[in-house]
């Protein structure tokens, strides 16, 4: 295993457990804050004197409000659908393109790689208006496809480049051995290189999924009907009422919009960590 070994328990505490606890604590504190806010009664939220770290009167009212006041369940479904499909599209394209750019010798490799990358450079704050024209031309405004097909514009470049990086870390010789054994170019790619790139595929997938899950501007502009909205748009645009924030439901929405995803990710992360260890050892 890659895990280093340690000497004394004391040394392990200093070099490992203390940093770990610090890191986890700092990372999760804001999260803890969201949890507390989401179960705290409104009256307490506005009390400066109250201890902000816990509440004696927890309530599920805000969760209830979230579902009552908004179409949260529907938004969650939309977000999931959009994120899954656009991630699948981007991974598929990115995997093939990343392999081609990293492994194959052809004249246009360098300029094409740069071009794919450049599309990632133009900020969405500039792109969304002309992109709106494209969306209109295809007649997909206010449908999930408006964002499913536009998200890949920034997901594909990332997936391509990340996977390019992974393909570089896989020794060329492994593939060459297979070819000597009689595998065709494509077979070598599919049977040898792709499986070795699984960690890269998963981390690109996680990245793409999260970006789709979070995306704000395109979803704001291309989706209109309340039943088409995604979680970030729906929660943010309907629960921020001018100068009054609905803190409880806002934070409840943030929690419900992230915990299930974290659980799924943890499964993937474990999976690719073991998969990979096996691959390198084997």
């Amino acid at each position: 295993m890659a895990a280093p070994r340690y000497g004394s328990p004391l040394k392990r505490a200093v070099t490992f457990y203390i940093p770990l606890v610090l890191m986890v604590g700092l990372t999760l504190f804001p999260f803890y804050w969201m949890v507390i806010t989401s179960i705290r009664p409104d009256v307490e939220l506005y009390n400066v004197k109250a201890n902000p770290f816990f509440t004696l009167y927890p309530t599920l009212q805000h969760f209830h409000d979230l579902f009552e006041l908004t179409m949260f369940a529907r938004w969650a479904w939309n977000t999931l659908f959009i994120a899954v499909v656009s991630t699948a599209i981007s991974l598929f394209c990115g995997l093939l393109a990343g392999y081609a750019l990293a492994r194959l010798q052809f004249r246009w490799a360098s300029p094409l790689g740069t071009m794919i990358f450049i599309t990632y450079l133009v900020p969405p704050t500039l792109l969304f208006i002309p992109l709106g024209d494209v969306v209109k031309t295809f007649g997909i405004g206010d449908t999930p496809w408006a964002v499913i097909l536009t998200y890949p514009t920034f997901l594909i470049p990332f997936c391509t480049w990340l996977l390019m990086g992974y393909f570089k870390t896989i020794p060329r010789e492994i593939e060459e051995c297979a070819r000597i054994d009689g595998a065709s170019r494509i077979q070598a790619m599919i049977r040898i290189s792709f499986p070795l790139a699984v960690p890269g595929i998963l981390s690109a997938g996680i990245f793409a999924f999260t970006l789709s899950w979070n995306e704000f501007l395109y979803a704001l502009v291309f989706l209109s009907s309340p039943q088409q909205k995604t979680i970030p748009i729906g929660v943010f645009t309907e629960l921020v009422r001018g100068d009054v924030f609905y803190w409880g439901p806002l934070m409840a929405g943030a929690l419900l919009g992230s915990i299930p995803v974290a659980l799924v990710y943890s499964f993937f992360v474990e999976h690719y960590v073991t998969a990979l260890t096996g691959a390198v050892k084997g």
């Binding site: 999260f31 704000f216 474990e270």
Partner: peptide
């Protein structure tokens, strides 16, 4: 569980975590 927890900040929709 720690690995899953570590990912949380990155998954919460940015607009909402920023509000927090």
């Amino acid at each position: 569980i720690v690995r899953a927890g570590m990912l949380l900040p990155w998954i919460v929709p940015t607009v909402l975590s920023t509000l927090a």
